[in-house]
Simulated scan of single mutants.
Amino acid sequence: MKNTVLKIWRFYVDGFRGMTLGRTLWFIILVKLFIMFFILRLFFFPNYLNTPAVGGDKEEYVGRELIHRAIGDPP
């Protein structure tokens, strides 16, 4: 079992060492993931739970918001 895992590890390490175009593609993939998960989150997905909960605990606030959004009523 240990030998098999070591062979698999060496296979991938040798494959990544031999890449030329692949390194550039992996860099592009990582940049796109960074943009999607960090940059877009800051601008398009505000954190509503950091706002003060009106009328009680955060659990009540979240429950009330889910119900209003499911029904379509404005709060």
Rank of each mutant, 00 (worst) to 15 (best):
48 Y>F: 03
30 L>W: 11
47 N>F: 04
2 K>E: 12
19 M>R: 04
42 L>Y: 13
28 I>Y: 01
52 P>E: 02
11 F>N: 11
34 F>I: 02
28 I>T: 11
13 V>D: 14
67 I>N: 11
13 V>S: 09
21 L>T: 07
58 K>D: 02
68 H>C: 12
46 P>M: 01
4 T>I: 07
25 L>M: 07
58 K>Q: 06
59 E>H: 09
16 F>D: 08
59 E>F: 03
40 L>A: 03
54 V>P: 03
50 N>M: 08
51 T>D: 13
38 F>C: 10
20 T>H: 04
10 R>D: 15
10 R>T: 15
46 P>I: 00
60 E>M: 12
57 D>T: 14
26 W>L: 13
71 I>F: 05
69 R>M: 07
18 G>N: 14
17 R>W: 04
28 I>G: 02
32 K>I: 14
60 E>V: 12
63 G>Y: 09
32 K>L: 14
34 F>N: 04
13 V>L: 15
35 I>K: 09
73 D>K: 07
42 L>T: 03
46 P>F: 00
59 E>Q: 09
12 Y>L: 12
47 N>P: 10
55 G>E: 02
33 L>K: 07
34 F>S: 07
54 V>G: 01
70 A>E: 13
65 E>D: 06
36 M>Y: 12
8 I>Q: 06
38 F>D: 10
12 Y>I: 03
75 P>H: 14
23 R>C: 06
5 V>I: 14
53 A>I: 00
39 I>W: 10
62 V>W: 09
20 T>Y: 01
64 R>A: 09
64 R>N: 10
41 R>H: 01
45 F>Q: 10
49 L>A: 05
51 T>C: 01
26 W>Y: 15
58 K>A: 03
11 F>W: 13
75 P>D: 12
52 P>T: 02
19 M>T: 11
56 G>S: 03
60 E>C: 13
24 T>C: 04
30 L>M: 14
21 L>E: 07
3 N>W: 08
20 T>D: 05
10 R>L: 15
49 L>N: 01
31 V>G: 04
55 G>Y: 02
73 D>M: 04
11 F>K: 11
56 G>P: 03
48 Y>P: 04
43 F>W: 08
29 I>R: 12
17 R>C: 05
43 F>Y: 04
57 D>H: 03
8 I>K: 01
19 M>S: 08
62 V>N: 03
1 M>T: 03
42 L>K: 10
54 V>H: 02
57 D>K: 06
38 F>A: 10
21 L>M: 05
64 R>Q: 11
30 L>N: 10
24 T>G: 06
6 L>G: 10
2 K>R: 13
21 L>R: 07
48 Y>V: 07
36 M>V: 09
23 R>S: 08
66 L>P: 01
63 G>D: 15
70 A>P: 01
67 I>E: 15
64 R>W: 08
68 H>Q: 14
60 E>W: 13
58 K>N: 02
7 K>Q: 13
19 M>Y: 04
9 W>K: 13
68 H>N: 12
40 L>T: 12
74 P>G: 14
36 M>H: 13
63 G>I: 05
41 R>K: 02
30 L>V: 04
